[in-house]
Design a protein around this nucleic acid. Sequence first.
DNA 1: GCCTTTACAGACCGACCTGTCTGTTTATGT
DNA 2: ACATAAACAGACAGGTCGGTCTGTAAAGGC
Lengths: 185, 185
Amino acid sequence: MRKANAKERILNTAGKLFFRHGYSEVGINEIIAKAETAKASFYQHYPSKKALCEAWLSDVHYRSEVSRADLLDSDATPRGKIEIYFDQLKSFMEQSEFRGCPYSNTGAVSGGECTGIIEQIQGHKESIRGFLREVCFQHVSDKKKADTLGDRIFLLYSGATTESQNLKEIWPIEIARDAALELIN
Amino acid sequence: MRKANAKERILNTAGKLFFRHGYSEVGINEIIAKAETAKASFYQHYPSKKALCEAWLSDVHYRSEVSRADLLDSDATPRGKIEIYFDQLKSFMEQSEFRGCPYSNTGAVSGGECTGIIEQIQGHKESIRGFLREVCFQHVSDKKKADTLGDRIFLLYSGATTESQNLKEIWPIEIARDAALELIN
DNA sequence: GCCTTTACAGACCGACCTGTCTGTTTATGT
DNA sequence: ACATAAACAGACAGGTCGGTCTGTAAAGGC
């Protein structure tokens, strides 16, 4: 018996490969070879490569949502939560060699023909947006102001991720964090 | 004789296809079929598909740089230039069906192994960043303040492009424009 | 002991990929 | 009229792709 069952091994291996090299650059043969499983085992658990990709994105979404919920319910100040959120992004980008957002990257590959993946991307982005709006609402307690403030921080966050990936540098995240913290004052 | 020579036809056709469907989703055969040329003619002008991609990005960069230089030298106020720049992005996203930035999209595909393309992406991004910094310098005439202000607008611009693409909606650009205009006040 | 489920190995298929090659046609300059 | 270069058509090679198929091995419940 292996350390984990085949389905989990496939999902973990594919996740790493999709994230590092991009969905379209990774083949089924590479996934099953690195996961040390057989092609028949793969198709026993996932009907297609696209379904595996959706399972991966769903898994990432679940974990990130738990993390945001924890941060939202923590006893830090709203301002502190924003700071922590950007610092988490910073360490994520550093330790992932500036690979950026798995959702945006996957969406950039599939030019728009795959509806299932697009829906997951939009759900994930709206989740982050809602989180930032809620944090801001804890700060200003004015729904409308909190929404526009949260949206602006959301765009700073997204831009920081994108350009940190493009330029392979960390300063966009620091600039965005400073700008967000000034906005919330 | 065709309306344009083969090299230009290939570049224009490939540009449209790369932009709409993504670099890795478009093959040589499709390009030459849509460009109504022969494979031998293609390899007479471009040594490889990657070289064609670099030529396309270089062409896009040249045209966008001219556009930014025109805007920079125009007689609009710095604030007006920012506004025009975001409005240009808005109409670009609308008429391109939310395909986003060709550079970021291409960079998301090639996970980092292709240095030539990465250099072009970074050059393009730094060009936009420099443009925004200069516009801000026309406004605040304090080099350090102009730089951080320009960088913040740069991140808003990037985030607006990314999320407008992801969500297939136009509001991120309007939010980013409003935020940028408030920042510059 | 048997039986069902799960995982294994890997051949095989048709389609597609980039890139090479041979040879023909067309346009242009002199 | 003729030479030269560009564009043409398309077969071909060597490889990879996602996905299907047949058959075997091992584990767990009864």
